[in-house]
């Protein structure tokens, strides 16, 4: 088993719809997609987002692009046009989800090159 941070291997994008936010999480390989489905649960996402998400979290599978789409309810301080937050649109929620650390089998990392951004 290896502990990895989603930011090292995954892509993500987030956006707003009223007081709902969506965060799409993309896996680089089929085996890591299976690992994401096992590890990145609605409950864990809710915990990670803490006070930002007042309502429930729904998870949708999007296998054609190896993605999980999370819909966060009551997650934008009432919606962008009445929010007091400095990120009223939830644009940074994608990076928040990428903070999550998960356990994967070594074999599930086959063919995955961890992301190496410039320092």
């Amino acid at each position: 088993m290896t502990r990895i941070r989603l930011a090292d291997v995954a892509h993500a994008r987030s956006g707003d719809k009223g007081d709902l936010a969506n965060v799409a999480l993309f896996a680089p390989t089929d085996s890591l997609y299976a690992a994401f489905k096992r590890e990145v649960t609605e409950e864990r996402v809710r915990q990670l987002f803490g006070r930002f998400v007042q309502g429930r979290v729904d998870r949708y599978e999007v296998p054609n692009v190896r993605a999980l789409n999370f819909v966060l309810h009551e997650a934008l301080d009432g919606g962008a046009a009445r929010s007091l937050r400095s990120d009223p649109l939830g644009k940074s929620y994608g990076s928040l989800l990428l903070r999550m650390e998960i356990e994967v089998d070594d074999a599930e990392m086959d063919g995955v090159t961890p992301r190496r951004p410039p320092r």
Partner: peptide, 11 residues
């Protein structure tokens, strides 16, 4: 693909 799911609820 990142844009495909931008601001999408049930895909």
């Amino acid at each position: 693909k990142e844009q495909l799911l931008y601001e999408v609820l049930d895909p």
